[in-house]
Design a protein around this nucleic acid. Sequence first.
DNA 1: TTTAGGG
DNA 2: CCCTAAA
Length: 652
Amino acid sequence: MVLKKRLGHGFIGFQVPFIPRCPRSARRKCPSKKDDQVCAFELLASLAGKLLEEGESSASSNASECNHQPSLCQDVNERDRQEEVKPLIAEDIHHGSCAESIFVTDIVSQNSSQKPLLHAKTECVLGCNSDAKADVFKLDKKIEHCSYSYSNKLVDSAGDFRGSCDSNVKSGFRRELEADKCSLKDQFELYDSLALVGSNSDVKPQYCRESFPSASFSKHGNDVKFCFRDDGENFLRCNDVCTKAKAFRIPQHIAHRKIRKQLFSKYWKAGPKLKDCELNKSEFADVEVKHIYHKRKASSGFITSQHNARVKKRKFFDRVSGVTSDGVFSSESVSNSPEKGIDGDNSDLSAKLHASKDSHVKFSIKSLRIPELYIEVPDTATVGFLKRRIMEEVMAILGDSVHVGVLLQEEKVKDDNRTLMQTGISCKENLDTLTVVLEPSSLLTSPAACVSDPSSQLEMSEPARSPKTPILESGNTDILGDSSLLTNPGNVLESKHESTTSPDDTIGDEITPDSKALVAVPTIPEALAVIPANQKTKRAEFAQRRTRRPFSVTEVEALVHMVEELGTGRWRDVKLRAFQNADHRTYVDLKDKWKTLVHTARISPQQRRGEQVPQELLDRVLAAHCYWSQHQAKQNVKHQAIPAILNVSNHL
DNA sequence: TTTAGGG
DNA sequence: CCCTAAA
């Protein structure tokens, strides 16, 4: 297939001509080495223009499609309308700045059994004069708008697409940009083509296009969506307040980078329509059924409801791999997921991010991780019931607002105002440990508050979490209600806290006034800038304290139990036996907790703070502590004694 | 990686 | 909780 040959990395699907041709006059507008990117944009621009013309004329036919996907279409339409009247955000552009965008696309195959993929690309537009750049954004806006129109066109012509699914469907566009809409006055002669891979192909539909901002394109059943949206961080909302994304944006006069993320997935956006997509759960997330406290029950006699099996459903997970400028994948398969997808493929939702030097960062998101969920159902429940429960939980998240969280080196990156470079997301090694997760964001705080004061935001923000930590575990308490894991009730408060600030946890706009100083030297090649910083300082730069998670009485009891059994020097075993599923509790945490427990037990009740641990437990803590201290002493004596004996025997 | 202990 | 020396 010709298409395949032209696509890099074996990606198949939707394609636009490789290097769009630009009139020389247009190319000259930009520094030579950025031609490709600029041209790519121009290509989109041309597409946008075309779509505007064609899309609007098809508005009437959109209505019928919207009936099928009300939540999606209405939302999009509404956004589009608002976008139309909204002033274009030219202030985002800055002289000599790098307009960097991340476009995440989604393709849903026509064949529902195939999996949706997310594809993320970043593109930099550098070196253009500011006018041109401002217009690039305008164009971007246009593109956004137009692409939606275009999506409808695609929908309208779904039949046509289906009819020619096995062959590439191409459509060419020629667009002459109007001077009043764009200062890139030169004419472009661009050809664009869309290709839809055969619906029966067993090849996963993927989309890849080098040097070109991706447009999302999804097709499912009768629906074909082409979406190209600029939605900053709030790209996964069903009922998003349109202005929110903008509210988050502060004037970026000093912006040197702008990261704009576009992620569109019908699955996510469609919310309750998920079922219609026949996205079965195995595609959605790999499911693991565990009797979480089974071991504990067995070993320490903890009794929980005999009829309750804990069902722990995990994510699909993933990590982000980066590609450095040399184009070498630093990590193709970096998932550290303890449980791979059932089918060994967790690329259900995957996207690619690529990274390169000269201040571009390209990412390759293998997949987006869904927060860990805890579901509890009676073991007498039917499989069907279980499925429904899982679906309910998933929908609770998806139906709700969702945003993206970024974890670097297993720690959540909470400060959205830092640049990628500052955060450490621009260097190769770190990209290996970059994780992208979807998070619920039902409780939103005032966006303004988050942005206006970065420092307070820092304090407010949710501290880092382990990537294995169920992002939703606590934050989801409201949703899960009683079914959530009863680790610590105290988390409810925390979770709200987290949720409140979590909207920031996205790859959003990156520039704030206080980051100016650091970004002000963009001319320094990244390599040079990074080299002087040793691992320590780099780590220190984006190190964040984990969320404080007070131990619940239940946890304390489990801990005490295990220590009584194992002693005080086997924290790893304690962890394995009693906290296997509490990903956020490390053996060091357990050890520390024991330490504080002993301390607590020794001080007077009046001096104790926080959740009161029953005196009975504290007594056991002291008893165990004393016992094992003595035991350890005895062990030491033995260890000393044995060699002594051996020595004696050797002498004999 | 795990333990142990100071901060 | 963090950090880290030491095992």
